[in-house]
């Protein structure tokens, strides 16, 4: 993200952003970017409106234009009534929205968002998503990184799955689901003892013919199949009795876990 923002030089290869070489045109590229960093870097010594106007001045935007844009953007992120308040008392969601407004102050062609809703409560996340969706509607290109698959599903037209710095898959959310997962998933929950050791292995073996693919977790078995109800009936027919059964649609989360593995990466 820092490299695309032209703050860090490319570590290897060449990098072109908006048709310009990142290594030589840093300031020119940055003037057309909006950046929403992972950690808020708002100016706590200034009011909300001043945060925007001062930031606009860094782009060389004339004072009056900066003031008008600040007012307009505060309205857009629904903070107009707090314009003269300081940053510190704001909630996490408000700070995020202010940061997003700040990233828009130069009317950028491209907005970089680094995990824009990490750490926000559900209401605040939905508000941020809704605002970002509006931006998308206006034709602004958004590049965002996220760990939340629901966020990616909500916002992205095209999505790239990265694992340990490499691209492992690419496409629209529905394409990726179609390519790397089945239509439905049956989650069978068992007691921890049932799935441990040879008993667990036997269980998986018994269920194997019923699904395209089986994922064994310590407390659950996931059956990837195109018809969840049929698979559920087949499980019952074999008199296997899980403590609970859940049939759901396959999500990006399944794609992600399938592609990058379940081992915990810290």
């Amino acid at each position: 993200m820092r490299m695309i923002g032209c703050v860090s030089p490319p570590s290897a290869g060449s990098l072109h952003i908006l048709g310009l070489d990142a290594a030589t045109h840093g300031p020119a590229i940055r003037s057309r970017l909006g950046v929403v960093p992972q950690q808020d870097s708002l100016d706590v010594e200034l009011s909300l409106a001043e945060n925007l106007t001062v930031y606009a001045r860094y782009f060389g935007i004339p004072r009056q234009v900066a003031r008008d844009r600040a007012a307009e953007l505060l309205k857009f992120v629904q903070l107009a009534d707090r314009a003269d308040s300081k940053v510190e008392p704001l909630s996490g969601g408000m700070k995020r929205r202010l940061t997003i407004a700040r990233a828009l102050v130069n009317e950028p062609d491209l907005v970089l968002l680094d995990e824009p809703t990490t750490g926000l409560d559900p209401q605040a996340r939905h508000l941020v998503w809704e605002r970002l969706y509006r931006l998308k509607q206006r034709g602004v290109t958004l590049v965002l990184t996220t760990h939340y698959m629901d966020e990616a599903e909500q916002l992205c037209d095209r999505l790239v799955v990265m694992d340990a710095g490499r691209i492992v898959a690419e496409g629209s959310p529905s394409q990726l689901i179609a390519r790397y997962s089945s239509r439905e998933v049956v989650e069978l929950r068992f007691g921890l003892d049932d799935l441990a050791g040879p008993a667990g292995a036997e269980l998986v073996k018994a269920l194997e013919p019923l699904a395209d693919r089986i994922e064994a977790l310590p407390d659950r078995l996931l059956l990837y199949t195109d018809d969840g109800d049929a698979a559920t009936a087949a499980v019952a027919a074999r008199s296997i009795e899980p403590t609970s059964v859940l049939v759901r649609r396959s999500t990006l989360e399944d794609v992600f876990l399938h592609l990058t593995g379940r081992t915990l990466v810290d």
């Binding site: 300031p27 003037s31 960093p37 870097s41 930031y55 860094y58 782009f59 060389g60």
Partner: peptide
């Protein structure tokens, strides 16, 4: 502490 310069250097300011 304020990470102010991170924000400033994301703009054209060098």
């Amino acid at each position: 502490y304020m990470r102010l310069y991170d924000a400033v250097l994301a703009t054209p300011v060098t």
